[in-house]
């Protein structure tokens, strides 16, 4: 297999996903099969080829940067985890003993 369980666990950590042993094993099998198919790209010589990252070559048309009023209270209705107008999360810094 191209990817083993340990690599999957590292990827899971990087992408903030949980993966127990059983899930990691299944994912390793599936991703290895996909990556095996992708080996076909090895036969192409891409020396001197410029990578293509964007969908269009047109120069992007940038609009004027101006402030547009927006009612922020609407956005805050998107979660119930708000206290004193701030988003609540678990402690980030441990309490001093």
């Amino acid at each position: 297999m191209i990817i083993d369980n340990n690599t999957i666990k590292k990827i899971a950590q990087l992408s903030a996903l949980d993966a127990d042993d059983k899930q990691a094993e299944l994912l390793a099998i599936q991703l290895s099969k996909i990556l095996e198919h992708m080996k076909a790209l090895d036969e192409i010589d891409v020396k001197g080829v410029e990578p293509m990252f964007f969908g269009c070559d047109d120069v992007h048309d940038m609009r004027e940067d101006k402030v547009v009023p927006f009612d922020h209270s609407i956005i805050k209705k998107e979660t119930r985890f708000i206290e004193k107008d701030l988003y609540s999360v678990p402690n980030i810094i441990e309490d001093e003993q």
């Binding site: 990817i3 690599t7 999957i8 590292k10 990827i11 899971a12 990087l14 992408s15 996903l17 994912l27 991703l31 996909i34 990556l35 992708m38 790209l41 192409i44 891409v46 080829v49 410029e50 990578p51 293509m52 990252f53």
Partner: peptide, 24 residues
Amino acid sequence: ALGTFVLSAGYYDAYFIKAAKVRR
């Protein structure tokens, strides 16, 4: 997971950059 893998250190050139070149 697959996207994180192809962008991760050690695999970025072999997968992502290669794919972007073949896209061209």
